[in-house]
């Protein structure tokens, strides 16, 4: 026989090739173990920790088979925590609504009205700023909201206000900056839905006698619901846990759930700080799970058109 002799590694490969199970294990599950250890396991550990299942002995943590809600109880007793959670919801809801109202016309224009040949360019223009580090963009907002800043300059020049207003350090500043930071997460899914929308549907509605307004209300808007829901989820979830923006443009009265977590972990520290922080974090995770579940139920189920 004239077969070429193969090097040893080919022989091993031949053997691996003959078993699909070995291949799937090596290719998929071996790398996935990384995520199990460094992503999923920490969630379980943090949950156990918040339930008092680890006790510190000198420098080591020892597992103790008990469940205690002490950290959760203490968390809600902690001054300002309840208010901070309420405030987080308030911010997140306003941010979600605000991003939706401000971005829907843009997503609609890009997805439905803009000719295809400009799509790519405009989307690029839209995206580029979001490639710039978000801390810097937030820092830039300080120049706008400052009492001597850009916004007050315009407001006083136009005579809308007489004296510069104080925005930095207020709820308004936090919410506006949150809207600014999260708006892209709302535009993306809505644009994605509208761009794929069969434009003949709109023409069909018109031939059936629907006015442009009717067409929008009865066809376009209902069809963009999945995008709006996805956008709302993408904005709301991180907005609840936001801590960078309140720190950078807020003040003493803009403490949020995120700030609480941050403070417990990086300022209070120690077993108590970590315990309270874990409890706060797990409440947040619980919220995320509930919202995601609701989303899947809503989008997975049938959405009525008009």
């Amino acid at each position: 026989m004239s077969h070429r002799r193969e090097p040893w590694y080919i022989t091993i490969l031949d053997r691996i090739r003959s078993s699909r199970r070995i291949k799937v294990f090596l290719l998929v599950f071996l790398p996935f173990i990384y995520l199990i250890i460094f992503f999923f396991a920490p969630f379980i550990i943090a949950l156990m920790y918040s339930l008092g299942m680890f006790k510190q002995v000198v420098y080591e943590f020892v597992f103790q088979p008990q469940i205690s809600l002490e950290y959760y109880y203490r968390l809600f007793q902690y001054p300002g925590v309840l208010v901070a959670i309420q405030r987080s919801f308030y911010y997140a809801i306003l941010t979600t609504v605000g991003t939706f109202l401000l971005s829907y016309p843009v997503a609609y224009y890009l997805g439905v009205k803009l000719p295809d040949k400009y799509q790519e360019m405009v989307v690029l223009v839209l995206f580029t700023p979001f490639w710039v580090n978000f801390l810097l963009r937030i820092y830039g907002m300080r120049f706008i909201f400052h009492e001597l800043g850009f916004l007050n300059m315009i407001l006083t020049t136009l005579g809308i206000v007489n004296d510069p207003i104080k925005i930095l350090g207020t709820d308004t500043a936090v919410i506006l900056v949150m809207i600014y930071t999260y708006v892209i997460l709302m535009i993306l899914p809505i644009y994605g839905v509208l761009e794929k929308l069969d434009k003949e549907l709109l023409e069909a509605a018109a031939t059936l006698g629907a006015s442009p307004v009717k067409t929008f209300l009865k066809v376009t808007l209902p069809l963009s619901v999945p995008g709006i829901l996805a956008g709302s989820l993408l904005v709301f979830i991180p907005a609840v846990g936001e801590f960078v923006i309140p720190e950078l443009v807020g003040g003493a009265n803009t403490v949020t759930l995120g700030t609480v977590i941050y403070n417990f972990f990086l300022r209070v520290k120690g077993t108590m700080g970590w315990g309270l922080g874990s409890a706060a974090g797990l409440i947040y995770i619980g919220l995320i799970l509930v919202l995601s579940y609701l989303y899947i139920r809503l989008v997975g189920g049938e959405i009525r058109l008009g």
Partner: peptide
């Protein structure tokens, strides 16, 4: 998952 959650669970871990 928001990063703050990932961050805090990993830190506890």
């Amino acid at each position: 998952i928001p990063e703050i959650v990932e961050a805090l669970t990993l830190l506890v871990f």
